[in-house]
């Protein structure tokens, strides 16, 4: 095979240029990123402190009740049981820290993802621009943006939430887009004919009808946020990820496994509850609507 001519290779100069841009951003945009940092922490820190302040039995009972209401009596017992196991492992406190990070990231994903998803549903142009962006958010190896994130935000929760959002944002955008596009055109037409403004159409018809799909997106977003827990711990976010990293770095297989299995338990609980929430929503919709 003939090699690509070396004189045409510009990879090195591009990477140097990127280095310079990152350096420039780190130095000159510091006030902007500090403001984001403070904003995220203002939500996350009180939330985490609240979760940690709750008595352990209260957390277990509330999660059990929620799982019962949202899923079934059986799963209510299972969910409480899983959390009890995590408590016996001595990891409930770390699990609460993880939960705070995951739910904060998911909340921010909803705040950003819903409008973007709606915009993509309304405009094919936005959709075609968003598609490759979302693809790269999901496939770009996270270590690539973790290190610049640490330079911008320092070690801790904010870069962890940011990295989690980059990975967990796409599903809610994609499924919001899909849900709204899938709304029966005749229903939309009927709405238009009865003289609704496009804002009313969106609020009263399209979003409610797309809700099951949007909630499925939320469920996926939460699950993907959980998948980033260990990565988030690599940049200083405490929580269950720390246990896994300790296990890996010290060759303490058991310790790593207990941390890992606790993440799995958390995932099972969050998955079933958010799924249950989604299907209840769509049921009440079909009954009342």
């Amino acid at each position: 095979m003939f090699d690509f001519p070396e004189t045409l290779v510009i990879g090195r100069s591009i990477s140097k240029w990127i280095d310079r841009v990152v350096d420039w951003v780190v130095v000159n945009w510091d006030p902007f990123f500090s403001a984001i940092n403070i904003g995220v922490l203002r939500i996350l820190v009180p939330f985490q402190e609240f979760l940690q302040w709750l008595p352990w039995w209260f957390v277990i009972i509330m999660v059990g009740l929620l799982a019962w209401r949202m899923v079934s009596v059986k799963f209510g017992i299972v969910a409480a049981g899983l959390l009890l196991v995590v408590s016996f492992l001595g990891l409930l406190d770390l699990a609460m820290i993880t939960l705070a990070i995951v739910l904060t990231a998911a909340l921010l994903c909803v705040v950003i993802g819903l409008p973007v998803g709606i915009a993509a549903a309304k405009s094919n142009r936005v959709d075609s621009i968003m598609r490759p962006v979302l693809d790269s958010m999901q496939t770009m190896p996270s270590f690539v943006y973790l290190i610049p994130a640490v330079m911008l935000f320092g070690l801790g929760k904010t870069p962890a939430v940011m990295a989690t959002m980059i990975y967990a944002l796409p599903p809610i955008i994609r499924l919001t887009n899909l849900g709204i596009r899938q709304v029966d055109p005749s229903v939309v037409e009927a709405g238009r004919a009865s003289g609704t403004t496009s804002w009313q159409l969106l609020r009263k018809i399209q979003i409610p009808l797309a809700m099951p799909t949007i909630l499925a997106g939320l469920n996926q977003t939460i699950m993907m946020a959980l998948a980033m827990v260990v990565i988030a711990s690599m940049i200083g976010a405490r929580g269950l990820g720390i246990e896994v990293l300790n296990g890996i770095n010290r060759l303490e297989v058991g310790r790593g496994f207990l941390g890992g299995i606790s993440i799995v338990f958390l995932a099972v609980i969050l998955d079933r509850i958010s799924q249950g929430f989604a299907s209840r929503k769509s049921q009440t919709r079909s009954i009342s609507g």
Partner: peptide, 20 residues
């Protein structure tokens, strides 16, 4: 006491403030 999870993160955590 904040512990980074990798040597790259540790370097970045010390280099970032120095840059700024």
């Amino acid at each position: 006491i904040i512990s980074p999870g990798s040597s790259g993160a540790m370097e970045a955590a010390l280099a970032g403030p120095q840059k700024k």
